[in-house]
Simulated assay, not measured.
Amino acid sequence: MGDGPVTHLVRRMESHGIVVVMPPASDPSAATVDAFSTRAARPLVVLTANRADDVYRHRFTAAHELGHLVLHGDATGDSRQEKEADAFAAEFLTPQDSILPLLPKRMDLARLAELRQVWGVSIHSLVYRCRELGLISDATTSRTYQRLRALDGQPGFIPESVANYSGEQPSLLRQAFELACKEADLSVAALAHELAWTTKRVRELLDVQEQRPVLRLVQ
Score class of each variant (00 low, 15 high):
residue 75 A to E: 15
residue 66 L to E: 11
residue 34 D to H: 12
residue 30 A to C: 15
residue 76 T to C: 12
residue 25 A to S: 11
residue 80 R to H: 02
residue 61 T to G: 04
residue 83 K to I: 10
residue 29 S to I: 15
residue 28 P to A: 08
residue 55 V to G: 11
residue 81 Q to H: 09
residue 57 R to Q: 15
residue 79 S to M: 13
residue 68 H to Y: 03
residue 71 L to D: 00
residue 73 G to M: 09
residue 59 R to I: 10
residue 85 A to I: 02
residue 40 A to L: 12
residue 85 A to V: 00
residue 65 E to N: 01
residue 82 E to Y: 05
residue 42 R to I: 04
residue 44 L to W: 08
residue 50 N to M: 04
residue 29 S to M: 15
residue 39 R to N: 06
residue 85 A to D: 03
residue 81 Q to M: 15
residue 59 R to N: 07
residue 47 L to M: 14
residue 34 D to K: 09
residue 71 L to W: 05
residue 48 T to E: 14
residue 72 H to A: 10
residue 66 L to G: 07
residue 32 T to H: 13
residue 81 Q to Y: 04
residue 39 R to I: 06
residue 55 V to I: 14
residue 27 D to H: 09
residue 80 R to G: 11
residue 39 R to F: 00
residue 69 L to N: 05
residue 47 L to E: 07
residue 69 L to A: 03
residue 80 R to N: 09
residue 64 H to K: 00
residue 57 R to M: 10
residue 46 V to D: 14
residue 42 R to S: 04
residue 27 D to M: 01
residue 63 A to T: 08
residue 60 F to N: 12
residue 72 H to Y: 03
residue 49 A to D: 09
residue 59 R to Q: 07
residue 51 R to D: 10
residue 67 G to L: 05
residue 36 F to S: 15
residue 37 S to D: 03
residue 26 S to W: 02
residue 25 A to C: 12
residue 44 L to Y: 08
residue 25 A to D: 14
residue 56 Y to Q: 12
residue 81 Q to V: 04
residue 51 R to I: 07
residue 83 K to E: 10
residue 54 D to N: 07
residue 85 A to Y: 02
residue 28 P to W: 03
residue 61 T to M: 13
residue 42 R to H: 07
residue 41 A to V: 14
residue 80 R to S: 06
residue 33 V to Q: 13
residue 66 L to I: 03
residue 39 R to P: 05
residue 31 A to N: 05
residue 55 V to S: 05
residue 66 L to N: 08
residue 38 T to E: 04
residue 70 V to R: 13
residue 68 H to T: 09
residue 72 H to T: 00
